[in-house]
Design a protein around this nucleic acid. Structure first.
Lengths: 200, 200
DNA sequence: GCCGAAGATGACCGACTGGTCAACTTGCTA
DNA sequence: TAGCAAGTTGACCAGTCGGTCATCTTCGGC
């Protein structure tokens, strides 16, 4: 085992944090089309500094996206201890929708498609979602043929509808999440024509 | 009123049609990021020719997107005469999903956001969707507080979920469209927390 | 077959991108 | 406080993009 690396300099730590915050904001506003130059400017740093901290643009995208998935996974783990499985599932989908809404759905999807690190974070989130769905099913809240991946994808869907609407409709997703959750109920459920996906 | 313009030359007509077909395919594959050069090559034409027929890239995007919305509006008008309003609504959502899936959801959204012509086509489609929803509601198939814009947005949503899934899952949207339509039923409907949008 | 006009062409332009690097500055350790 | 590794900088590079335009080709009326 090599000796512990010298700790990072304080200015490097500060710049790295500023870069992550700036990247988060720029990616949220403009998706993966956000330019490195713009992120650097927002962080108050030269462009070369970005590449010192993140070898490629993809690495920066992955860092931001992984943080988001990890944040949601923590929420799911906490809710898995909740005494009311139905409320826990609703709260989880709302929290997920809020993060997706804030960070940008297509950004997170693109990130998990081109980075195995992000895909890993996403899969851990999926596993936590499965736990919540299974608990809700045992409670009679959701139909038998629905999985965690289904719920995550449908939550993404409701956020997308809000983003697709005209002008700012920041919480239109609440309307559609309500309809979707109603559609998950076991009463009056139509048989589903296509099998559930393995991953969201 | 000026005298009728001389009819277009046959080669111009042929090239315009080839360009529209090529643009449709390229936009479907790569969204608005598709390059003019790629579209020109696919159409077997030089780049300058593209700009002779469409002054800007946006004009080309608008032409392709408008065609799609008009195609869906025609479907809706036909279904408005159908004797079974519930089946008509289901068929309309399926047809819409298929077009969105084929042409690319984000492409169509981007197109209608930056071109008033496309927005007009989209609004005509919305009006036709409203007719279908109203008929279904009178038949007791959908809850009272749902509009045509809701149904269109939710249909977009199910397509988005399929696109967000891993690998090719070309008809996963059928699974989620079933869940969503179940969620539209009047029985066991939870009150909706946010008003419906004016446009989809 | 001739000829004018409409159309097609592709080299070219400027703007912008992600990424590199040699020169310079700064924080930390001894 | 001296010295050096770590960190920062911005000019620069190659590539791509949408868009222009002088030049050439082709259609179609006579």
């Amino acid at each position: 085992m090599p000796p512990a690396a010298r700790p990072a300099r304080v200015d490097a730590v500060r710049n790295r944090a500023a870069l992550l915050a700036a990247a988060e904001a720029e990616f949220a506003e403009r998706g993966t089309d956000a330019s490195i130059a713009g992120i650097a400017q927002r962080a108050g740093v030269a462009k070369g500094t970005v590449f010192r901290h993140f070898a490629t643009k993809d690495d920066l995208v992955a860092a931001v996206a992984s943080d988001r998935f990890a944040q949601l996974e923590a929420v799911a783990r906490r809710l898995a201890e909740s005494p009311d499985p139905g409320a826990a599932l609703r709260e989880f989908t709302s929290a997920t929708a809020e993060v997706l809404q804030q960070q940008g759905l297509t950004f997170l999807r693109a990130a998990s498609e081109c980075s195995p690190v992000v895909a890993g974070s996403r899969d851990r989130l999926l596993a936590s979602a499965d736990v919540l769905v299974e608990r809700a099913r045992r409670d009679g809240i959701v139909r038998a043929d629905v999985t965690g991946a289904d719920v995550l994808l449908l939550t993404c869907a409701t956020v997308h509808t809000a983003a697709a609407g005209p002008g700012p409709a920041p919480d239109l997703w609440r309307r559609y999440l309500t309809i979707v959750v109603d559609g998950l109920r076991p009463e009056s459920a139509s048989p589903l024509p296509v099998p559930a996906p393995q991953q969201p």
